[in-house]
Design a binder for these strands. Structure first.
Lengths: 146, 146
DNA sequence: CGGGTGGGTTCGGTGAAGCGACTCGGTCAG
DNA sequence: CTGACCGAGTCGCTTCACCGAACCCACCCG
């Protein structure tokens, strides 16, 4: 996103957007939350160019949002996982999703939902479970298609 | 942000980002929340190009995130205000700001803070007031420099 | 040996963002 | 009446990020 960066801005939001505000970055984080971890799967799911994907993954790993970890040797293959820092972007994603659902609903209803593991409730506007009231985060929710 | 758009994606987050994911869009919304409403002030505060600013404002007004309203005649001058839809982006901004503060703290501390009007508490991770526990939103908080 | 797979790198073209200058309606000071 | 000024854009050129597609390489499998 940053042609010329936002460094004139002394603002937490601007600093956050310098890292995750580039095109594709938040969608990548979203996909990792959804359980997508491999290069080829990102290409296929997002329709992102390989070269841009390489750049974004490098950036996100460099910033400590994602972690690159080998999942096999011979040949060496890597997967990308969320770090704690990346996991803390979960509230941003949830609120973006809620906003999108509210104002640009898809005819079929929300295509994927984040639900409280076990209880099955959804996060409300304060990230509390609509069913049992527990505070939700990336750790105690799972994403379900349809 | 959208060279080629995210329409292959059936996802609330992608739909939201199609509207507010372009470079500058969220920073514009942030500034309107901060009380900046005029073209020249956006140019000065953000360092955004006039032509890009024109395009972004048109887009955001077209999507119903901002409202363009004359504040004087002779000559006619307009200001840009948040709609209810725009105000609902507040949680996204707050969580982005919290994430930025946590991971990229500025030496001086948060340069601006959103505080509960009257009480003076800040929003916690669940958008509740740290001081009195009240649920916070765009309406009952104000932004304070330093 | 020949094809397949995962994970990239390289490269030319395009369109969006950047930079600066110009415009236009109107007000105001002298 | 003239010239300076202001807010809010528009215009034209340049530059750089993104796209698409091809290519590469290590390794496996038959």
């Amino acid at each position: 996103m940053l042609r010329r960066d936002y460094d004139t801005q002394v603002c937490s939001i601007a600093r956050a957007l310098e890292v995750v505000g580039e095109r594709w970055s938040l969608l990548l984080v979203r996909d990792v939350v959804f359980g997508v971890h491999r290069f080829e799967d990102f290409v296929e799911r997002l329709g992102i160019t390989r070269s841009v994907l390489t750049a974004r993954l490098e950036r996100l790993v460099g910033e400590g949002v994602l972690e690159r970890r080998p999942y096999q040797e011979h040949p060496v293959r890597h997967e990308y996982l969320l770090t704690e820092k990346g996991r803390q972007l979960w509230p941003v994603l949830i609120h973006l999703a809620r906003w999108g659902d509210t104002h640009y609903p898809s005819p079929e209803g929300p295509p994927r939902a984040f639900l409280h593991t076990g209880c099955g409730g959804a996060p409300d506007g304060h990230l509390l479970c609509t069913r049992c009231g527990a505070p939700l985060d990336a750790a105690n929710t799972t994403s379900h298609p349809r």
